[in-house]
Design a protein around this nucleic acid. Structure first.
Length: 419
RNA sequence: GUGGGUGUAGCUCAGUUGGCAGAGCGCCAGGUUGUGGUCCUGGAUGUCGUGGGUUCAAGUCCCAUCACUCACCCCA
């Protein structure tokens, strides 16, 4: 084998790929039910959009972007996330001049040049939801409920919702200064000391036990909120209570992207190992202005499709492969193969998923193929059937087999299968 | 970027003090000349990651290199 997939790029082969589609479908349905419309945005954008939108000091921008010059000499970057691109598109096409909030969903790959590990990829699949143009805490709660509905639809029972607020332009600066003062007094390594100056909140999120111990008594944002942020946060929490969505208050939870304000949250799954975040989001009331737009609040989230697949598999490790087709046709002999080819075509046209044995496979091998396809019925046509104008229809679960007129096969099977 | 682990059949892996390249699963065929899922029999598939070294002899020991993988960091 001379070629292999690029490093850190997951591929989803059958039957696993069915789970990939199911994850997308679950969230697309939840988003559609909540009045969100689909938006297709570019996979690459002007590099500057991400530098200004996501934040030049973030790890994502400073060391993880796939950035290159195109043939015209422009610096472009494969999207490391969706939000900046969606906001850019909304502003560029003036969607915010219509009714607010603008509610959109998008899905597809994002790219980050990181060292791969379990649940961390260079090409990651996200499902993204944004509500732009509203400050209402009910919209915050709506996005959380939407994500929650997606996880529920997939049958996930062990998802945890971690909730926090990061304050706003009014209250965050004072908190940030107080936190920096506290952190500067600690004995921390050089990288962490640098982070204190760039984004001190992230130090609170450090997983290393020795760092955790040091920051245990650090000041928390929840004690420094302004009145309106506190009211906003309380409202979000009481709405979640109304919806009976359980959450954990996690005052140390921080997002790694600069644009987040006020409500932030993360969904986490306990069976995934180190990379356990299966979704995350929050409010980004300053993003529009950061990229040259008007004051325009917004909130949204991204869920990680790859990690959700892992979570689904972790919670149900013995799921049978989904059936590939409903009917599998088995011809015996060349003449039958020709007739069966048309029959299968007619079944498909009638909306019945059908496949057949190729390459003149023997009856035994062909029946094996029928079994593995997951089909409920096999249709066997040999020379004798052809002469009699019949086909053998075999129920592959019970083993019962009956001869039916060839001409009625399509309508009969269609009828049985739609019951 | 930093640290650990692993590379042997399509897949999961075993391979002893260095001595003929293995198992299970899967695949194909036969048992059953027109019947799958169970069972039995047989068969095909290998650059032992790659390059070099030590040795009469290397999957096994040594060096280098590449790949994969887990964790830190970061994030979905």
């Amino acid at each position: 084998m001379s070629f292999q997939a690029p490093k850190g790029v997951p591929e989803y082969l059958p039957p696993r790929s069915a789970t990939f589609l199911a994850v997308r479908e679950a969230f697309a349905t939840a988003a559609g039910n909540a009045g969100y419309s689909y938006i297709e945005v570019p996979v690459f954008e002007d590099t500057e959009l991400f530098a200004r939108g996501v934040g030049a000091s973030t790890d994502v921008v400073s060391k993880e972007m796939y950035t290159f010059a195109d043939r015209g000499g422009r610096s472009v970057t494969l999207r490391p996330e969706f939000t900046a691109g969606v906001m850019r598109s909304v502003l560029e096409h003036g969607l915010h001049h219509g009714q607010l909030p603008v509610k959109l969903w998008a899905t597809g790959p994002a790219f980050r040049y990181e060292r791969p590990q379990a649940g961390r990829f260079r090409q990651l699949q996200q499902f993204n939801v944004e509500a732009i143009g509203s400050e209402d805490p009910a919209v915050d709660a709506e996005t959380i409920a939407l994500a929650w509905a997606g996880y529920q639809a997939l049958g996930l029972t062990r998802v945890r919702l971690l909730l926090n607020t990061l304050g706003c332009k009014q209250c965050r600066p004072a908190y940030r200064a107080a936190l920096q003062e506290f952190l500067r007094a600690l004995d921390l390594d050089e990288d962490t000391r640098r982070r204190i100056e760039i984004n001190p909140l992230r130090v609170l999120d450090d997983k290393r036990p020795e760092v955790r111990a040091l920051v245990e008594n650090a000041p928390l944002i929840t004690d420094h909120l302004c009145a309106s942020c506190k009211a906003h946060h309380d409202r979000v929490r009481s709405l979640l209570e109304d919806l009976r969505i359980p959450w954990e208050d996690t005052p140390r939870l921080v997002r790694g992207l600069d644009y987040y304000t006020r409500t932030t949250y993360e969904f986490d799954h306990p069976m995934l190992g180190a990379q356990s975040g299966i979704g995350g989001g929050g409010r980004y009331d300053g993003l529009s202005e950061d990229i040259g737009g008007p004051a325009l609040p917004g909130i949204g989230f991204a869920v990680g499709v790859d990690r959700i697949i892992m979570a689904v598999e972790a919670e149900n490790d013995d799921r049978p492969a989904p059936p590939r087709v409903e009917v599998y046709a088995v011809p015996l002999g060349e003449e039958a193969a020709r007739r069966v080819f048309t029959l299968v075509h007619e079944l498909r046209a009638a909306g019945v998923a059908a496949d057949m044995a190729f390459d003149g496979r023997g009856l035994k091998g062909a029946m094996k193929g029928a079994d593995r396809s997951g089909a409920a019925y096999a249709v066997i046509v040999g020379e004798r059937d052809l002469a009699a104008g019949t086909a053998q229809v075999k129920d592959l679960v019970s083993g019962d087999q009956t001869a039916l007129p060839l001409a009625e096969i399509v309508t009969t099977l269609k009828e049985i299968l739609t019951k």
